[in-house]
Design a protein around this nucleic acid. Sequence first.
DNA 1: GAGGTAATTGTTATGTTATCACAAGTCAAC
DNA 2: GTTGACTTGTGATAACATAACAATTACCTC
Lengths: 168, 168
Amino acid sequence: MTDPAAPAAFRPHDHARCVAGTLALARRVAAERGLRLTPVRHRVLEILLERHAAMGAYEVLERLAEEGFGHQPPVAYRALDFLVTNGLAHRIQRLNAFIACDHPGEAHHAAFLVCSGCKTVAEIPADELRATLDSAAAATGFAIERASVEAVGLCPECRAQGRAGQPA
Amino acid sequence: MTDPAAPAAFRPHDHARCVAGTLALARRVAAERGLRLTPVRHRVLEILLERHAAMGAYEVLERLAEEGFGHQPPVAYRALDFLVTNGLAHRIQRLNAFIACDHPGEAHHAAFLVCSGCKTVAEIPADELRATLDSAAAATGFAIERASVEAVGLCPECRAQGRAGQPA
DNA sequence: GAGGTAATTGTTATGTTATCACAAGTCAAC
DNA sequence: GTTGACTTGTGATAACATAACAATTACCTC
Ligand SMILES: [Zn+2]
Ligand SMILES: [Zn+2]
Ligand SMILES: [Zn+2]
Ligand SMILES: [Zn+2]
């Protein structure tokens, strides 16, 4: 049930530790690169890290507003853009939502597994996949700048419980 | 420059013929499956086929309205949903837009190459890619229902002309 | 052909996601 | 401490998408 090859998102794990580790990594990356991980930005990253799921900009905004930050959409969008641009978060196109990066700082291509049962999103390594895609594209003369690979389905736990996916 | 391995979208070609062929195929598929390719739906498919690019629902709607169909968003969204559901069109998540399927009726997994220079979108076969993704997911216990693979970059022509991609 | 049923189309209204434009504040370098 | 770049906050608006209901049309059965 809890496959050791599965990403943390699909396994019971010490999430507090998981958050702390990623956050520490993100701070280090920001410091190394001279990025300003300001209070809003840092807080948005923390909010994204709370769950292994994607969060919409307006949901993030609501949280920020409650905590005394601005109440207007650009406040959330700008922080999210910053995180995505600097590789600290990813955008899930299918969901119009955002998720914290699992491996900030490491150059990597990722694919995302979105569970339609429990909304968990797992980031899995996709360097090989990306290489395949690159060469398929190259064969047509197309040069890829960036790509997104997103799958919807059922996570191990939802499968085990016979849970059905929501049509969304 | 005009690589024979490139999809039609990236090559100069007899587009009228290209449209006619796909349309004929779509009609046959619809007939075989007892699908009702009504006037709005057929027209939407024609509109999508006009260019090898993705079109937003509101852009489609505008065209429909001009031609005497309904003027409200659901008119376009419903026709587009029908086409997507029945494999006659695809949704490009990244663009919130739709494109006619190149191979209606054939079971296939596709990846999309979106040119940021000229907005051309090419559908390329991705069965192998999908198999790789499936097994990577399976290794984590995740069962994929559907996946989207979308790449942004420069098409052969835009590269040849040194055209730059728009940030979008 | 009439009646019943399901699918389709149309409308109004509303919800959700994202960006623009500008003012005010913060920070670091000089 | 002034300059200039960046960041945050605001109001307004644009772009994308769906809910709910009425009217019509296709299709099947009798
Ligand atoms: Zn965790
Ligand atoms: Zn799940
Ligand atoms: Zn063509
Ligand atoms: Zn191009």
